[in-house]
Structure formats: structure tokens, C-alpha cells
């Protein structure tokens, strides 16, 4: 279990402050939804928590050693097949059968061996989510994971994510309050600094 405590956290890009003196507790074992207007620093906050950026001041206390992340962009290796993109992250720690079953849950069973460049935008998004779920993690970060999916798929994918993340620490960024409801998440609203 990994609680995340943010104390007096500040981050700016040049003269532009993105996060100012933020204090926040993210509970372990539950899903926390971060909501707020565009430009309020949600993605920056996720990147700070993931250790991809350093804060200007303040501290982040986290027990999470292994972090899995669905970025706003798909970030897939386009020349490689769907299953290879999962292997990129998990190596040989997960057997092919389990990967195939996971991909089938995302309705990607027919395209497992296809190169990612041949997939639709919605399929690529689901591969990116499946890749994050296939990894071993203490903390799962989802930055607008359902962006670009149609309503029917959104419902289905949310159910799959929910099933796979029961009892796990998840931070979920969305603009859609219904996603937070379906995920049964604790909601934190951020405001622009």
C-alpha cells in the first residue's frame, strides 16, 4: 500500500507558475480522481509524482516504487505488434497467454499480432491502457485515459480498468465527472494558480 503525501509543492516553467504551494494526501488502495480546468497543472502534478520532473520546492513522500502510467499520448512503438508493445514494458515476466487474455478484455483479440501503425486511434488508446495494466505497479497513473474513445467503448474500458485496479492505488485525471462516478473514485478538484 502506498500513500502519497505532497507538501508545499511548487513547480513553474520559466516565469509561468503551474503548481503553487500544493498540499495533498492521496490515499492508498483507492482511486483518486484529479479534476480541474485545462492548464491547472494536473499533468504536471502526475509527472512530479511519477518522478519524471523535479519540483522547484516542496516534497513528495511516496512509498510507491513501481509506477505504471497511461500518458495523454499513446506512446507506442508503431512498427511493432500489439503484443510486442506489451513485451516492451513487461519483458518475459508475463506469459503470452496472460497478455493475450488481457488484450481480449480490451477487445483487441483480433489485432494482437498486428503492427500498431495499422490500428485505429481508439485501438491504440486501449493498447496503451493494457500496457500500463500489464506492468507490476504500486501506483497506477492514468492521464485522461479514455480520450478519443466513443461512449460505448468508454463504459467497457472503464469496467476493465476498475476490475484490474481493485484495492490498488490509482490516480486518474479526467474532465468528465461521470468517469469519476463509474470508477467510484474520491475526487480532488484543482484550481488554476
Amino acid at each position: 500500500m502506498s500513500e502519497i503525501v505532497l507538501r508545499n509543492l511548487s513547480k513553474s516553467y520559466g516565469e509561468n507558475p503551474v503548481i503553487s504551494d500544493l498540499n495533498l494526501n492521496i490515499k492508498s488502495g483507492v482511486t483518486t480522481c484529479l479534476m480541474g480546468p485545462s492548464g491547472c497543472g494536473k499533468t504536471t502534478l502526475l509527472r512530479l509524482i511519477a518522478g519524471l520532473e523535479k519540483p522547484d520546492s516542496g516534497e513528495i513522500m511516496s512509498e510507491a516504487r513501481k509506477i505504471s502510467y497511461v500518458f495523454q499520448e499513446d506512446r507506442l512503438s508503431e512498427d511493432f505488434s500489439v503484443i510486442s508493445n506489451i513485451r516492451f514494458v513487461v519483458g518475459k515476466t508475463m506469459n503470452s497467454e496472460d497478455i493475450r487474455n488481457l488484450l481480449k478484455e480490451f477487445e483487441l483479440g483480433d489485432v494482437i499480432d498486428k503492427p500498431v501503425r495499422e490500428l485505429s486511434g481508439g485501438m491504440k488508446r486501449r493498447v496503451a491502457i493494457a500496457r500500463a495494466l500489464s506492468a507490476t505497479y504500486d501506483l497506477l497513473i492514468l492521464d485522461e485515459p479514455l480520450k478519443g474513445l466513443d461512449e460505448k467503448l468508454k463504459q467497457h474500458v472503464m469496467e476493465v480498468i476498475k476490475n484490474h485496479t481493485k484495492g490498488k492505488t490509482v490516480i486518474y485525471v479526467t474532465h468528465d465527472s461521470t468517469e469519476a462516478d463509474v470508477m467510484g473514485a474520491r475526487v480532488i478538484c484543482l484550481e488554476k494558480t
Binding site: A50, I67, R75, L76, F88, V89
Partner: peptide, 14 residues
Amino acid sequence: DSQLLEVASLYHVP
């Protein structure tokens, strides 16, 4: 691709 490299570093890809 710097974004893929970031993914690799996050997951400690060898």
C-alpha cells in the same frame, strides 16, 4: 522518440 524513452525509463526497461 523521447516520449518512448521516458516510458522506458519509467518501467526500468533494460
